[in-house]
Amino acid sequence: MGKLVVKVLEGKEKREKQYEVMREELDPYTTVLELLLKIREEQDPSLVLRYSCRMALCGSCGMIINGRPRLACLTKMKDLDEPIRIEPLKNVGTIRGLVPDLSSFFSKYRKVRPFLVAKDEEEQESPKSPYRQTDEEVKRYLQFNYCIQCGLCYSACPVVSSNPNFLGPAAINVAYRYTADSRDSDKLRVLLLDTPNGVWSCRVAGSCSVVCPKGVDPSLSIQLAKSLILRRKI
């Protein structure tokens, strides 16, 4: 069966460590997360990584695997070429090991006011009745509501790599999700998007949508946000 070679680039300096794992100890459905935990338990207890749910819901285990941003818990060994090369997410800092510093990512996410703003503030704080929606109203934003804030799209975005002030795909996606919601009345959020570092920095590379583990398609939400802004200006 032989040995599987795993190369891990750790920390800010991208120090490379190489590990070997016997193939007979793995099966084709072993995930990269399971592989890394095995290496940490049996070979290198200093290997640092972040994870939680193990089922692609929390977004904690994002990393670059064979050159592509992926969730380690969702990536199976059978889908990868060898040797396997793992490193921290790009376009963000690194706290330690394979753990990314997502401070800038979440700062931009919060900046776009990712919450519903009702016309009546008193009603919003103390609702007296349900905020009803039709199926068609829900469909306008439902796809974009599945974002788990893993940061993969941010890491894959070529615009973020050249312009750190760009809001990024996830922030614009969530901004469009709430703006397209019939229950929302926020006027400020669109102004935040209609800036040089907002939607107009996007060059439609589409890499954000390619790497999204939940099929959100942030590239589409960015273009819909552009259309929404232009229609409001006419």
Rank of each mutant, 00 (worst) to 15 (best):
Y176T: 03
K90P: 05
P130G: 07
R110E: 15
L57E: 15
K187Y: 05
R85C: 03
A170V: 04
E121R: 14
I64M: 15
A171N: 10
P83A: 04
A175V: 01
F115Y: 14
G97T: 01
K119T: 12
E87W: 08
Y176D: 04
G97H: 01
L71N: 04
G67R: 11
E125A: 14
R85V: 10
V92H: 01
T94D: 05
I65R: 03
M55E: 15
R85D: 02
M55W: 14
R183F: 09
Y176A: 02
R96A: 09
Y176L: 04
R183Q: 09
E82L: 02
V112T: 05
S126Q: 15
Y146A: 13
Y178C: 02
R189D: 00
A56F: 06
L188M: 13
E82Y: 01
V159I: 11
K119V: 10
L116W: 07
S104C: 08
I84D: 01
Y146T: 13
L102D: 10
K187P: 07
D79F: 06
L80D: 00
V174S: 11
E123L: 12
K78L: 13
D135Q: 14
A170N: 04
R110F: 11
G97C: 02
K90M: 12
D79R: 07
R140T: 10
R85Y: 06
E137F: 05
K78S: 13
G151L: 01
R113L: 13
P114M: 06
C61H: 06
L80S: 00
A118I: 07
L167V: 01
R140P: 08
V160H: 11
L74A: 13
K187V: 05
C150A: 09
F105L: 11
E82S: 03
L188E: 15
N163V: 05
C153V: 04
L57W: 12
L102R: 13
C150N: 06
A170M: 05
S104D: 15
L71H: 04
E87V: 08
A56C: 12
F166H: 03
R54W: 11
Q143R: 11
D81F: 09
P158G: 14
V174C: 09
I64K: 09
N66I: 02
R85F: 06
L98F: 00
I65M: 04
L98W: 01
G97K: 00
P164C: 05
K139F: 08
G93I: 00
K76V: 12
Y131G: 10
E82V: 03
L98N: 00
P69Y: 08
R54E: 15
L71P: 02
L142G: 07
G97N: 01
I148H: 08
K108I: 00
E137V: 05
S104V: 10
K108W: 00
